[in-house]
Design a protein around this nucleic acid. Structure first.
Lengths: 209, 209
DNA sequence: GTATTGATGTCGTGG
DNA sequence: CCACGACGTCAATAC
């Protein structure tokens, strides 16, 4: 009845085991099982967005007796089916992706478009994703005095670890005169204090600007 | 036909919009829609484990004309149903949680059980989750000379940010003589170099020990 | 393949 | 309610 070669949704009483990066198991119960054409296998319990168990794309699904097994090179999900309550094959399932707006990338663009007023500097050059040994700096503005203004952009509240991320990047920019900035919609008190300690400035910027 | 008060799975031709932390939209197509009793609403396209759109627990679902809307205080998912291909109500959906093994917590226990040989010290006291202003240190061993051996435990390869996390914690331990350790199954080259710079030691430990 | 990072991250936990 | 960190994070991207 179940066709492991085709995508389907299944409501069944089952037990589920997982072995791979960790191990998990759960006894009999009613769960929703989704199988996708890319090999993904997803098991949902009655609450939360995150699946109870899953295995990602590029895995293969087999059915032996009453056991569904999704296998990848390093992982395995085993579903013992006790009773099939409902089965439906998903024909012509659409794979279109959503169009997203409001990402960090967009914030960077807004920052660049408004750099003069937001940072209060004259900009002679803009660099995106400037590489350092420790990783890329989101945006670097060079002003007319050849000072580098290095900005770490976050789409959410600036946290402590963002401060250290910037510190880590700037520690590899030593040859240049640098000013550090953290740009985002908000900053917490402890992060604000830590930023002050390092002389980093906070620039308020969000999706609505 | 659709009962928004009950959990269900639905296969339908629909368009989906999201507004909240970001915004997204996608045109007509066949998708799987899950609704859970806690308010979660999950929309799956034909590939990948992660849902195309979703809204979390504590949201409410309404149906007006042909529009399903999941609303939380700050977010909204709107699904315009063009055609219902298949609908099934999920009665007595189980909510049992899986039992996980192989977590960081277990690694900490193994570390503590083998501290003498792994760190090469004599242990007079063990503290878990020792609080500093910057956050909790996973494990702190005090030796017979009253030296603190502070260990950040990771269940995966040690990354650069783990080094800085430890640094951040230890910077608030100044009154005490401290030694820093990073414990995990592996460490990359750049993280290894950075750890050396701070004098932190790497302790190899994994699930198989 | 490895390495790194963003994410509508989600989720639990503790103050 | 916010803050913080783990997660089988996932998924995209650079190398």
């Amino acid at each position: 009845m179940i066709d492991v070669l085709k995508p389907f949704m299944l409501y069944a009483n089952c037990s589920v085991e997982y072995a791979g990066r960790a191990n998990s198991s759960v006894g009999p119960g009613l769960r929703v099982i989704l199988h996708k054409a890319d090999g993904s296998l997803i098991v949902h319990k009655a609450s939360n967005v995150t699946p109870m168990n899953y295995i990602g794309p590029k895995s293969t699904l087999t059915l032996e007796n009453q056991t569904l097994t999704g296998r990848s090179k390093t992982e395995r999900v085993t579903i013992l089916i006790n009773e099939i309550i409902h089965y439906h094959e998903l024909i012509e399932w659409s794979n279109d992706s959503i169009k997203l707006t409001g990402t960090e990338n967009e914030l960077c663009e807004k920052l660049i478009a408004n750099a003069g007023s937001l940072l209060g500097i004259g900009v002679s050059r803009v660099q995106r994703e400037l590489l350092t040994v420790a990783g890329p700096i989101d945006v670097v503005f060079t002003d007319f005095n050849d000072i580098r203004h290095c900005v770490e952009v976050k789409r959410k509240k600036i946290t402590m670890s963002a401060i250290y991320q910037l510190y880590r990047y700037l520690s590899h920019m030593s040859p240049y005169a640098c000013v550090g900035y953290l740009a985002g919609p908000d900053i917490g008190n402890s992060a604000r204090r830590e930023a002050d300690k390092y002389g980093y400035k906070f620039v308020k910027i969000d999706h609505s600007i």
